[in-house]
Design a protein around this nucleic acid. Sequence first.
RNA 1: UCCACAGUAGCUCAGUCGGUAGAGCAAGCGGCUGUUAACCGCUAGGUCGUAGGUUCGAGCCCUACCUGUGGAGCCA
Length: 466
Amino acid sequence: MQWPLRIADLLAGKAAVGSSVTVKGWVRTRRDSKAGFSFINIHDGSAFDGIQVVAEQTLPNYSDEILKLGAGCSVSITGTLVASQGKEQAVEVKAETLTVLGWVDDPETYPVAKKRHTFEYLRTVAHLRPRTNTFGAMARIRNSASQAIHRYFNERGFYWVNTPIVTASDCEGAGELFRVSTLDLHNLPRTDKGAVDFTKDFFGSESFLTVSGQLNGEAYCTAMSRIYTFGPTFRAENSNTSRHLAEFWMVEPEVAFADLKQNADMAEEFLQYVFRAVLNERQDDMAFFDQHISQGVIARLESVVNAEFVRMDYSDAITVLQKSGKKFEFPVQWGLDLQSEHERYLAEEHVGRPVILMNYPQAIKAFYMRANEDGKTCAAMDVLAPGIGEIIGGSQREERLDVLDAKMQALGLQEGLWWYRDLRRYGTIPHAGFGLGFERLLTYITGMDNIRDAIPFPRVPGSALF
RNA sequence: UCCACAGUAGCUCAGUCGGUAGAGCAAGCGGCUGUUAACCGCUAGGUCGUAGGUUCGAGCCCUACCUGUGGAGCCA
């Protein structure tokens, strides 16, 4: 199939000046010259910039259509690609025909006017916000990062595994789960004892939306050696912050025959790979974020790409915090989890770039993390990034059946997760992996403040609009 | 869930001591110009988040609720 050239292609010089081209897209602005022509800026989403179309008054529909074009109208233009006389662009299209495909029915109330809007307002018109500079740029960067993630793993022999969205185990980890059910809430089936009878439910048992693909991922890891998941994840926590979504995308690699050190090395290489790809592929969009959203984001990413991440043991981090002389709201003491303020101090002030903390106390980490020889800590790691805190959490997994059994028994998990236990009964191996919140990665890349602006249609407590 | 702040024109906001609402941008019309967040002029645009209450009188004071934002907790 022969695909038509996009505006990005025209701007990149893929059509010769003087050749006939067709541009289809949406009007951003129109400026008229009384010399008898109009400038129309057209965007089609293929690049940060649009292309300028010059429409002369000799066009048959000039006065009754072209002079009425405004932001949001869709058009198809055929004309000649010419060198621009203006300074802001190299080429423009001299229109020979301009067809209006769709008008804006009420320009005064068109939600995405030719003016600055707050992100807060644009969330209320999320179906139209991809037409703005910021959200168009975000959509392209999101895609670029997604593709880079798949490429990184593919080039290293990983298989992308599609783990289930619906799960029957409510013990995948901490966190509130969304219930999935077809039972009639107004007329629930009951057991003899009066409890809800979930054997009558669609799946024959209580079921939920997944909070992580990791446990299923481990099953494929212990056969395919290197796998990763990249898909939606759901948390029903009532978290109202700029860093939380009820529905978000998570990347979870799982590597057989790997230990914690290799896991940390992978996390670093992975982040650098993705950052480098976005910096290369989306220079136009990154320049916009750097200039208008968060000054210095490009330099920040470049420094992360070029510098080795600092690695630090949890125990040493505690010492650093205690010796910092800073007054923290929450106590710093070995055995306690680190608070946002502590993580921020370590990444932003003490180190100044991403830092990988390793070997946390077992008691504050998940049951599947491998117990260390000291009997107190486990092979867990968190990658802390300046500005957002924890961006990656991972660990070497507990592969010893007896050690895992002891932990699962204490939590009452061995019945529901019998199959997870089987992975240690049948050819167990050392393995490790991590989880990365994709939208958090995007806020870090772009410098956007609110995670709701890093996903097309955000789902948060109290809102599942669009 | 907790704490704080906010809700006035399509959007962003101002509104003094409680006395029946104003600007900028956007929009419409006109002017000017190879323009580029164009510029200049004119016009239109409001049940002040909702429901109660206090008062002769509420955008303003009080109560409740709703919604949004920031921070905390939980986490990715």
